[in-house]
Write a protein that binds this DNA or RNA. Structure first.
Length: 271
DNA sequence: CTAAAATCCTGGTGGC
DNA sequence: TGCCACCAGGATTTTA
């Protein structure tokens, strides 16, 4: 499940093989994956455009194109982007292909078909509701403390709300809360200044560690574009460690469900 | 505003 | 070994 660190890793890996390349055409065999515009219009508008830059916003990838368009991807649960030689056999989970002028193909593979593709004139059309980037200067400890105080919600659902902060998903929310020593079912507005400062630090630390480790390859879902695995799964403190001893206090990690999401925390050192 | 539930998907898993 | 119910989960939509 690609979250901010996984998407950042993918963005960095795609720059070398894609920047400067020209897109010739698009193929798709599962229409829902193309969010907008409809495939015939997408093909017409994208043909001949060069890829000038590749960036990340939250969990989205944004390709700036020379023709004034932005090609946006969201990988959701199982999406993968691969740049390959056309001789490479096409896996049956590939449902969208961008053909490049240099002969290579950008393939969007997605087992669960939740991923989406957008082509827009103005990326704000897609990004309008997103909260701040947690690794940018916009996301200060002061901003978090001010905004968390007026939210009457549980911490875990709030952290994965993309309109509050962009890019945090189930794994890094649990990791950030553990590092901050905060229970995921705490009410957001009950945090003291010291606690929300700890949360700010916990968010920063877990996301930065995720980027350094090039993401978490928990099952078979997330892979780097070169097929390799990230290393973050080895540095997870609570996620997926139900029943195993907490590294900090030794108590068994507990698993509960919050907002229909599996949530892992240590009952011994998170308050 | 907050939240719960349903929706979209399929591979993997646990039970028998 | 085979079969099947069930789970995972990001974001959106619908319904309280």
């Amino acid at each position: 499940m690609p979250e901010l660190p996984e998407v950042e890793t993918i963005v960095r890996a795609l720059r070398a093989p894609l920047i400067g390349q020209r897109i010739i055409d698009v193929w798709n065999d599962w229409p829902r994956i193309i969010n907008r515009p409809p495939l015939p219009e997408l093909r017409a508008r994208i043909a001949g455009c060069h890829i000038e830059a590749i960036n990340r916003r939250g969990k989205y990838l944004a390709f700036d194109l020379s023709c004034g368009e932005t090609l946006v991807f969201h990988l959701k649960m199982s999406g993968q982007l691969l740049v390959v030689d056309p001789a490479e056999p096409v896996d049956h989970h590939v449902h969208t292909v961008f053909y490049l002028a240099n002969g290579q193909e950008l393939r969007f593979r997605d087992i669960r078909k939740f991923g989406r593709v957008y082509l827009v004139r103005d990326p704000a059309e897609v990004f309008a509701e997103l909260g701040p980037e947690p690794l940018s200067d916009d996301f200060s400890s002061q901003w978090l403390c001010e905004n968390i105080a007026r939210r009457k919600r549980l911490l875990k659902p709030l952290l994965i709300d993309q309109t509050f902060i962009a890019g945090i998903g189930n794994i890094y929310a649990d990791e950030a809360l553990h590092r901050a020593g905060l229970r995921p079912d705490r009410q957001a507005h009950t945090l003291t200044i010291a606690e929300c400062q700890a949360l700010h630090q916990g968010i920063r630390t877990s996301l930065e560690l995720g980027v350094i480790n090039e993401g978490a390859s928990i099952t078979t879902s997330y892979r780097k574009p070169d097929g390799g695995e990230g290393a973050m799964q080895e540095d997870l403190l609570v996620y997926g460690r139900t029943g195993e001893p907490c590294y900090r206090c030794g108590q068994p990690i507990e698993r509960i469900v919050l907002g229909a999401r599996s949530t892992h925390f240590c009952p011994g050192c998170q308050y």
